[in-house]
Simulated scan of single mutants.
Amino acid sequence: MNYTLNQLNIFLKITELKSITKAAEALYLTQPAVSIQLKNFQDQFEIPLTEVIGRQLYVTPFGQEIAEATKRILAEVEMMKHKGLAFKGQLTGRLNIAIVSTGKYVMPYFLSTFLKQHSGIDLVMDVTNRYQVLESLEKNEIDFALVSVLPDNLKVEKISLMENKLFLVGNPELAKTISKEENELFENLSWIYREEGSATRQSMERFIANKKIQVNKKIQLTSNEAVKQAVLAGLGFSIMPLIGLKNELNDREIAIIPVKGLPIKTSWNLIWLKGKKFSPAALAYLEFLKSNIEAVINTNYKWLENY
């Protein structure tokens, strides 16, 4: 047999996602490239690893066994890399973080310098919804989670990274139709919501309830980026975190609508399970944050002070 580590990695991703298309997206490869590598890997076995029934890809029982062996091989290769770096005195390991979708505007900047300083540390960061973030934390599958609202049902510890401000925003042309002196006009708006369970949605619902606004038309979308695009297109208004609107505000594509009771202010918190036993990589990152939060904010987020 003459398979490559690249083929092993691609095959394992296909077995996890049960889709060549999704595997290609996850690995940032083209679908034809993934299909070719799967075929080249399959050709080294006399028994099929996968089969397609209808349009659905299935992993055969033999393919499942090869996938398990693949996991062990790749884990050993990863360990070899870390052992080599550790032998040279470098900090090694893996940092596992799950963040809510809006956190993609926050977390990379608090990781960049640390990862440059410690090239032997690998990062696995899952960007998903709040429910899945907290589920991963509860199952102890990750080192840290980034959230803007602390969970009620978990015992966690935290470090606050920075303030989170949420404003009412809309397409500039649409925003001109709103008078800040006449909140009853809100009842004629189309409100664009995040999905159930989103911390942004919870803040927005509290604001609407406190203002006693009757929502007559509602649009629900499943990501902050989707909400932003809907606002840009003039589909309605939303209460959104300021941190994801820098370019649109600078280009005057989105307008902040001044309203009493806004902005809503929360904090971006990096949290972990109370009593968590950290790996050396996770412990080093926590120590890095304690000394560098202010520097990261001053370098990347001074613009937030203008709002």
Rank of each mutant, 00 (worst) to 15 (best):
T70C: 15
H82P: 00
F207M: 07
K218A: 05
G170K: 06
L57Y: 08
I47A: 09
K88I: 04
V147K: 08
A255Q: 07
S119V: 12
S35G: 13
N6Y: 07
K22W: 06
I264E: 08
A209R: 14
L270D: 03
A24H: 08
G120N: 10
S35F: 10
E248W: 10
P258D: 03
R206A: 11
N96Q: 15
T299M: 13
E163S: 12
I14C: 15
Y307P: 00
K246L: 04
Y105R: 02
T30Q: 09
L49M: 07
Q37N: 15
K104Y: 00
E287A: 05
V59T: 14
G103N: 04
L283D: 10
R55A: 12
A26D: 14
T299I: 03
K180M: 06
R55H: 10
E68M: 07
V77Q: 14
A255S: 08
D43S: 13
A209F: 10
R130V: 07
Y109S: 04
K276F: 10
F278T: 05
N247R: 14
S160R: 14
L134N: 06
T50Q: 08
E163L: 11
K290H: 08
S190L: 03
Q117H: 05
L8Y: 10
G89Y: 07
M162H: 07
D126S: 11
V77W: 00
N96V: 14
